[in-house]
């Protein structure tokens, strides 16, 4: 017997103490945060970005989740490693910040990428997108998912790299509307 999917509803404006309590300093645990890799990892990278609304304003009440493979392209099949969660409400610039490692290719000709799940007030159903890396230009050219995206929109999925004293920092802004509107996927 088949049943129909339970409908989605918005995460609303008050998710912080339920889903990201430690980040927002509420007395409740949280299952995942922005530290996908800890500070003992030598090849750690940082991913930062904002979620911008249709008027280009940073959204301070979004929640971003990341799911990724490890540096060898292996997904965790039995635990939670590779999953991160951050609200945009604790950074003065409404940024999300993830510290992690760059994943390897997961096969199928895919370039290294992270899956992003986006939730916020005003979003009745969550959205999926992907973060690719600007320094993987050759792999990106061969990626079948990027190939499904019109060429002029592919750049919305590519994080740009900046090298800092603390390692590479990749910037990935999510634009909900307008010029450079981020590509979102359905699967």
């Amino acid at each position: 017997m088949t049943s129909n999917q339970t409908p989605s509803q918005t995460v609303g404006p008050y998710f912080a103490y339920g889903l990201t309590a430690e980040q927002y300093r509420y007395p409740n645990g949280q299952i995942a945060d922005g530290a996908i890799a800890n500070d003992k990892v030598a090849d750690r990278i940082r991913i930062v970005g904002r979620v911008l609304d249709g008027e280009g304003r940073p959204i301070p009440d979004a929640m971003v989740e990341i799911w990724q493979a490890d540096r060898l392209g292996r997904y965790n099949q039995s635990g939670a490693g590779g999953f991160g969660r951050q609200g945009t409400g604790t950074d003065p610039e409404s940024r999300f910040v993830f510290d992690t490692v760059k994943p390897g290719s997961v096969g199928g000709g895919q370039a290294p990428h992270l899956t992003v799940i986006l939730f916020m007030r005003g979003l009745l159903s969550h959205l999926f997108t992907r973060i690719y890396f600007a320094d993987e230009a050759e792999a990106n050219l061969a990626d079948p998912v990027l190939a499904a995206v019109p060429a002029e929109r592919r750049q919305t999925l590519v994080a740009r790299r900046e090298d800092t004293a603390n390692g590479p920092v990749y910037t990935f802004d999510i634009r909900m509307q307008g010029d450079g509107e981020t590509v979102f996927f359905d699967f």
Binding site: G54, Y75, G107, G122, V145, V149, M176
Partner: peptide, 20 residues
Amino acid sequence: STSLRAPTRPLIPIARSLSE
């Protein structure tokens, strides 16, 4: 709140891979 936060372009369907 959906007016400035909903994407205006259709979602792009992709085949599921290990990532999904």
